[in-house]
Design a protein around this nucleic acid. Structure first.
Lengths: 185, 185
DNA sequence: CTTGTCTATGCAACGAGTTGCATAGGAGGA
DNA sequence: TCCTCCTATGCAACTCGTTGCATAGACAAG
């Protein structure tokens, strides 16, 4: 499992509270690893108990105090060990693909709206990624000399962009197939 | 959750035993939905209890008897209802992306072997998909006039092919980035 | 003749992930 | 003033998914 490791990476990039992590998991990290705040708080507690991360109570004004977590020496060791051991290529789970194959036994045309909805969602994500790329990496305000961390973050973001573009093209293909089915129906 | 639905679709395409389903989930269905035999047997039992599927004991020679499952009327209804309700675009989980961002805090060069390993795995899958496409859809032995089911299965397979090609190109990109980091290290 | 693989089914325990709910102060709008 | 949203943390219950193990006959290779 990699939620612990995703949290370690995120805290190395920048220390933060469970709440802040939850928000990052809705944004940048969430592009390739999702988690809810309940899950994050639970895992943070365990990681703290295991000595992977340190806590610091940060009093705040006008809002509740927060616990800021940062990676401890042991956490770095654990992450390093994980980085050096091979992992299996991810197993995919695509509800939509199940639906598309299932549509053969129902009304395929009824699926068109759903596919278009997904296409819009992917188009939105793509727009969002491209804006992020312009802001952080390729735009005029982006830092010119980039360190390893930025180079790698950019590489991951390019992966997200490639994924969304692929999905948009494929969903176009699926729509064409669904429309092509119409006459014989 | 969609394991039930994936099983219903698979059983509609062709009735079969838990064992056969488990093998299909290593092959065609497994391209977009993974499940182990333990999971499948457990869910089949529940689905049978709920009246979604029917069982038929099939005695065999030279090998253990099997229970052949097929979709009951209620199962069809359940599937149809699911097909008509909207689902959220999948949440992705990419261990490798976590590793790539994590590599900035360790030795990025050490990741090259791992990325190449993943690339080989994706190349193998692509080869496998392309062989399947040739066999079932575009080759000389493929049926000429295809029904809706085949058209849709082919569309899903094209999605798998597009995905693997995208991954191969992206992993090339990642490798180039990792190599580009070398000098400054 | 033993070892290993294939078909075929399943239990038990555990770990991961989701859903619902709860608390609580401050800010802003109707 | 009340209602809602935002920050911030967390528990409890449940479902989903993984891992390890067990059984058992048939067949092939060494």
């Amino acid at each position: 499992m990699a939620l612990e490791h995703a949290i370690l990476v995120s805290l190395l990039e920048k220390p933060g509270s469970g709440y802040e992590l939850a928000r990052r998991f809705e944004r940048s990290i969430g592009y390739f690893w999702t988690a809810t705040h309940q899950q994050i708080y639970r895992v943070l507690k365990r990681m703290e108990g295991d000595g992977w991360i340190d806590v610091r109570e940060v009093p705040q004004q006008g809002r509740p105090d927060k616990k800021e977590y940062s990676v401890a020496a042991l956490g770095r060791t654990v992450l390093s060990r994980w980085l050096h051991e091979p992992i299996e290529p991810e197993s995919v789970r695509h509800d939509l693909a199940v639906k598309i194959r299932g549509a053969a036994f129902d009304d395929p045309v009824a699926l068109i709206g759903e596919v278009e909805r997904h296409q819009r969602a992917h188009a939105d994500r793509l727009t969002h990624y491209l804006a992020g790329q312009l802001r952080d990496f390729t735009g005029p305000d982006a830092p010119t000399a980039q360190d390893a961390g930025q180079e790698l973050q950019h590489a991951v973001l390019r992966g997200g962009i490639a994924y969304e573009r692929m999905m948009l093209a494929w969903l176009d293909d699926v729509l064409a197939t669904l429309h092509g089915l119409r006459p014989e129906h």
